[in-house]
Design a protein around this nucleic acid. Sequence first.
DNA 1: CGATTATGATTAA
DNA 2: TAATCCTAATCGC
Length: 265
Amino acid sequence: MPEGHIIHRLAREIRSTLGGAPVLASSPQGRFADGAAAIDRHRLVRTDAWGKYLFCDFGTGEILHVHLGLIGKFRRRATPPPDPVGVVRLRLVGQGTTWDLSGPTRCELITPEEQDRIVAGLGADPLRRGADVATMRDRFARSGRPVGAVLLDQSIVAGIGNVYRAELLFLCGIRPDRAAASLTDDEFDELWRRTVELMRVGTRLGRIVTTEPDEIGRSRGRMGDEDRLYVYHREHCRRCGGPIATAEIGGRQIWYCPTCQPATA
DNA sequence: CGATTATGATTAA
DNA sequence: TAATCCTAATCGC
């Protein structure tokens, strides 16, 4: 289940594993049969990730646009691939690697102009160089909404999802219901800095890890699933052990620590 | 075996 | 806000 780090990771992995030779494309499920046929036997020219949106250019004039949504997955297989497991919307068979796409909220061929329109509607992407942080700061300052809602608004900052927003606000000691406009410059700067830092870590690891190994008392070994996060979907705070509170903000459930995230700035 | 849930977003109301 | 879409794992009966 994907936030921006997974999409950026996929863009790189798909490019490095499929780039070069012609790709065999099919739609085992059948729902993307025409699109797959249009891609079939073409070479992958480039991939690009903007927030949670993935674009793959097969040099056909149209761009493959994939949005995984809440439940979509790209599963990596060896080539030749085994029979599809479950419902596979799109299968891309490369020389040594096959990618199976299931459950996307979007899988379509679009024009370059349509891609431009999607990208133009997205806010600063912490995983892209040259992200427009000044505009993002300005949108925060002008917003009348809680910071927890603004962090999920992809037109303001692109790529953060429900886990990162909860963990980032925890790390910054900010309650999710604070008005975005009430953040000081220093608070905003720290929020952005941590966002870039953590999402880069997530891209490298392929999963979201926000805790410091030192803090949880293990300096070696693979981190257990329960140790990766401070507050998200937890009952007790990973840092202080106190009870975690929940609220609905920005249309989604959020978890926060009333102790580590004080009510006032 | 049905209900529930999940790191998301769009459309309708 | 609520309904809707997409899939698979997990949970309760």
